[in-house]
């Protein structure tokens, strides 16, 4: 596939000239990854929106890199004119989980920030609506962090109905309780036995 990458290369040049410290990679056709210092993210997003026509905030995500003790914030911007997705990434420390809001640029960013605040515990300064979004009365550590243990949480908060513990054959329990034998259909009516 030998497509013309004119738009991509031009965008990379423009970003390079304005943000000298940015690490830029052309991932594939119409995907550009830009890694930036965390303090350069707000100016970059504003520049991309107003000067490079990336006016659609397609997605805003967060990845927990617990081994590096860092959160990675990922902004996906799309330009309808150039047909390119720019993946702007930055890393912030897990110990000081705080970042600035971008809701003045895209109002739908508020919703993404509310979710990331709830799921990862990152505080977005300037966003005054970081209230309860999906979870209700949550007092544990933010659940999408890698150190949140779902199995332990389930064990602590829920109980198993007697006779329905894990790794048990339910048919055995029924047999024991009611005394009647439940046939094993898979065994008795398998093709081999019917022959």
């Amino acid at each position: 596939m030998n497509k013309n990458l004119y738009n991509e290369n031009q965008t990379i040049e423009e970003i390079k000239n304005t943000f000298h410290t940015a690490e830029i990679k052309l991932q594939r056709e119409s995907r550009i990854i830009v890694k930036l210092r965390s303090d350069l993210i707000p100016p970059f997003l504003s520049y991309a929106k107003n000067y490079l026509a990336f006016n659609h905030l397609a997605h805003f995500s967060c990845v927990d890199w617990i081994e590096d003790n860092e959160f990675e914030l990922v902004y996906l911007l799309y330009s309808y004119e150039k047909n390119i997705v720019v993946i702007a990434k930055t890393r912030i420390s897990r110990d000081k989980a705080e970042f600035v809001t971008i809701k003045h640029l895209w109002r739908q960013a508020e919703t993404y920030e509310r979710e990331i605040h709830e799921m990862f515990g990152i505080n977005f300064t300037g966003n005054d609506r970081l209230n309860e979004f999906i979870l209700e009365d949550w007092d544990d550590i933010p659940p999408m962090r890698r150190d949140f243990n779902t199995i332990q949480f389930a064990k602590d908060n829920f109980y198993t109905r007697p006779g329905r513990e894990d790794a048990q054959d339910v048919r055995e329990t029924i047999t024991k309780k009611s005394g009647e034998k439940i046939p094993d259909f898979a065994k008795e009516f398998s093709v081999r036995n019917l022959k």
Binding site: E132, F133, T150
Partner: peptide
């Protein structure tokens, strides 16, 4: 929202 949260991304 929150009536239908099943934590698919975590699962």
């Amino acid at each position: 929202v929150g009536y239908l949260h099943r934590a698919f991304e975590k699962l």
